[in-house]
C-alpha cells in the first residue's frame, strides 16, 4: 500500500500531497508546474520534505524528521526522461553498478527477456532511445525497488516504440513486488500501464476518468447481503450497497464509480446481467483509446472497454451495485 502525506515549500510555491492507494501501478498526470516531479523527488529522498510521512507497504521512509531514510537505502528506483545511463560505462557495466557480483546471471536473464542480449557489451552511444530506456528499466528492477518512479520515462520515444514497450513492461511491472508511480503527460501511456490514474492539480490527486455523481437518496432496502440504497440524480437512478456509511432517505450524497468497473456491451438476456446490476442505456459520445465517454440521459459516464464501439451507437451499461461507492 502507498500511504503518503507530504508538505514542502519551495520559493513561493507550497506543495501538499496526500495519496493513499492499494494499486500496484499508478499514473500521475497534470499540467507543467503542478508539482509532479517535485513529488517524485520528495519520495526518492532527493528533496527533503518539510513535514509528513512516506509509507510504502508499511515501510516508513520518512516521518516528520523522526525517520528520514537516505536515498541510497530507500530502495527506490528512478527513471528519468533522458540520461539514465552513464556514458563512460557499457551496457553490462551500467546495469551492474551497485549490484552484487552474483547478479551477473540475473543481468543476462533480463537482457535476454527484453531481447537485448546482443547489446550486452555495447557502448551507450550506440543504443537507440528505446534500448536505453529498457536498459534503465532492467537496472532499476534488478535493484528490487520498493517503489519504481518513472518520470516521463518514455516521452522521447516514438509511438511505435512506445506501444511495443508498454506491452513488454506491463506484466513485468505487475510481477515485481514493489509499486510503480508513473508521471506522464501521455494519457495513452497512463491508461495502458496504470491500474489507477490521478490528475494532480491544486495540490490534489483526483482520480481520472472516474465517475462522480451527486444525488438524493430515494430509498433504502434491507437485504441480507447488505442494505441497498437508490440515488436519483436528474433522470438517472442508481443502486448501490451500503457498506459502513450512515445514510437516510433524503440525504444528498456523492457516489464514485471507477471507469474500469463500468461494463459496456450489447444487450443479451442473461440473468447475471440483471442481478445486483444497474442496467443503463447510453450513447457513445467520444472514445479516447479504451476509455468511452457515454451519454446517459443528461449525464456523462466514463467506461473502459477493449471492444470497439462506433460513435453515436447505443450501448448497454452494467454497473454492479457493489461498485457504486459512497464518497460523501
Amino acid at each position: 500500500m502507498i500511504d503518503i502525506l507530504l508538505n514542502k515549500k519551495i520559493g513561493n510555491n507550497t506543495y501538499n500531497y496526500k495519496l493513499k492507494t492499494n494499486s500496484k501501478i499508478i499514473a500521475i498526470m497534470g499540467q507543467s508546474g503542478a508539482g509532479k516531479t517535485t513529488f517524485l523527488r520528495l519520495l526518492s529522498g532527493l528533496l527533503k520534505p518539510d513535514s509528513g510521512y512516506i509509507k510504502i507497504n508499511n515501510f516508513v521512509m520518512y516521518d516528520n524528521d523522526k525517520v528520514n531514510i537516505k536515498t541510497k537505502l530507500r530502495q527506490i528506483a528512478y527513471i528519468f526522461q533522458h540520461d539514465n545511463l552513464f556514458p563512460h560505462l557499457n551496457v553490462a557495466e551500467n546495469i551492474g553498478l551497485g549490484l552484487n557480483v552474483n547478479q551477473v546471471e540475473n543481468i543476462i536473464f533480463w537482457l535476454e527477456k527484453f531481447g537485448l542480449g546482443y547489446i550486452r557489451n555495447s557502448k551507450i552511444t550506440n543504443l537507440s532511445g528505446g534500448e536505453k530506456q529498457r536498459i534503465a528499466l532492467i537496472r532499476a528492477l534488478l535493484h528490487n525497488p520498493r517503489l519504481l518512479l518513472l518520470d516521463e520515462a518514455f516521452s522521447s520515444l516514438d509511438e511505435e516504440n512506445k506501444n511495443i514497450l508498454y506491452n513488454e513492461i506491463k506484466s513485468v511491472l505487475h510481477s515485481y513486488k514493489g509499486h510503480t508511480i508513473i508521471v506522464t503527460h501521455d494519457y495513452k501511456e497512463a491508461m495502458k500501464l496504470a491500474d489507477e490514474i490521478f490528475y494532480l492539480s491544486d495540490n490534489k490527486f483526483n482520480k481520472v476518468w472516474n465517475n462522480y455523481i451527486e444525488g438524493e437518496i430515494k430509498s433504502i432496502e434491507e437485504k441480507d447481503s447488505g442494505d441497498i440504497f437508490s440515488i436519483s440524480s436528474g433522470n438517472l437512478l442508481l443502486r448501490g450497497i451500503i457498506l459502513k456509511d450512515f445514510i437516510k432517505v433524503g440525504d444528498i450524497i456523492k457516489v464514485e464509480i471507477e471507469s474500469v468497473k463500468v461494463k459496456i456491451g450489447n444487450m443479451t438476456y442473461n440473468e447475471e446481467n440483471f442481478v445486483d446490476n444497474n442496467l443503463l442505456k447510453g450513447i457513445v459520445v467520444k472514445r479516447i483509446d479504451n476509455v468511452y465517454e457515454l451519454s446517459v440521459d443528461d449525464k456523462i459516464i466514463y467506461a473502459r472497454s477493449d471492444i470497439t464501439y462506433e460513435l453515436n451507437s447505443q450501448v448497454n451499461i452494467f454497473i454492479k451495485y457493489k461498485n457504486v461507492n459512497i464518497v460523501k
Binding site: S44, G45, L46, K70, T71, K72, L73, R74, Q75, I76, A77, Y78, F80, H82, D83, N84, F86, L97, G98, R139, H143
Partner: peptide, 23 residues
C-alpha cells in the same frame, strides 16, 4: 557534469565516494 548522474547514483544505492570515483 550532468547533476542527474549523481541522483541516479544515489537511487542505485551508491555512497558519496563511490559516486565520485565510479561516476
Amino acid at each position: 557534469l550532468n547533476p542527474v548522474y549523481k541522483d541516479i547514483g544515489k537511487t542505485l544505492g551508491l555512497g558519496r565516494f563511490k559516486i565520485i570515483f565510479s561516476i
